[in-house]
Amino acid sequence: MIYKFGGSERKKTKTGDRKSEKMKTNSPPFIHEELMEEILLKLLTKSVLRFKCLSKKWFSRISDPQFARRHFDAAVAPTYKLLNLVKGSDEAYCVDIESALCADSWHAVSNFSVPSSLSVAGSCRGFLLLQIYFQNFVVWNPSTGIQKQILRNTCVQYDLCGMGYDPVDDDIVVVTVTLKGGRYNNTLVRYFSLRKNCWSSVECGISYARPYFGCNLRHGQFWNGALYWIVASANRLRSVVIAFDVREKRLLEILLPDHLAIIQMESDIYHLKWPTLSSNE
């Protein structure tokens, strides 16, 4: 957190300081890059993006994924944003719901035209998972405009899907799950690593969940390292929560108790956040 600099540099600052005592107006104090980076980490994304133009050195320093990761983690509190995509145009508006109404952070970046058949299939660490025409995925960061199209090699309409984050590899992972049903059929999980830029798959044996035959993909909720979906059990009488551990790449299944039986297929999982008692604010 606090930086030590090499001897020669320290000496340089020292003489610089002495000089500044004599001619205060002429030599402003020298701020080392590491210290300046600590300041930039405290800025809003919009300002950080603007300061990519400072110099070539700062362009590469700010573009470094390590900086992005530290910037995300340094944010004291998550910001909640309302996104308005104007279909059929390339307009996207973003409102920070916690900032003052007159704030100018309303404009999001989008450099692709928003298709008419688009749905938001997940969100995680500032990224949105968009799904276009039930087929391709686009991972999009509305704050930076970074976007990546992910083509699905197979097109199964009744998959489960979602997006999660692997903190160890610092990787955003897009996941689809094809439930096959039946006790002895393995379930196929395909996942796309943004860092590796490729699809991988893993077969997992789960016993209770019944294949999902809805017309849309079921969107999972990412929370605390795993993606969650709720589906019906094989005998249709109970509900099953399926969890995919994004780090370990494992599928888990939790059969809900009888009194939590939800026969209808339209139930979804939502994670709610409310302040804990130990909160300082």
């Binding site: 993006l49 603007r50 362009f59 404009h107 970046v109 930076t144």
Partner: peptide, 12 residues
């Protein structure tokens, strides 16, 4: 560069 992040230069 300014063009790619044009929105970041608005309202400065």
């Amino acid at each position: 560069l300014r063009k790619t992040n044009a929105w970041a230069f608005e309202g400065v």
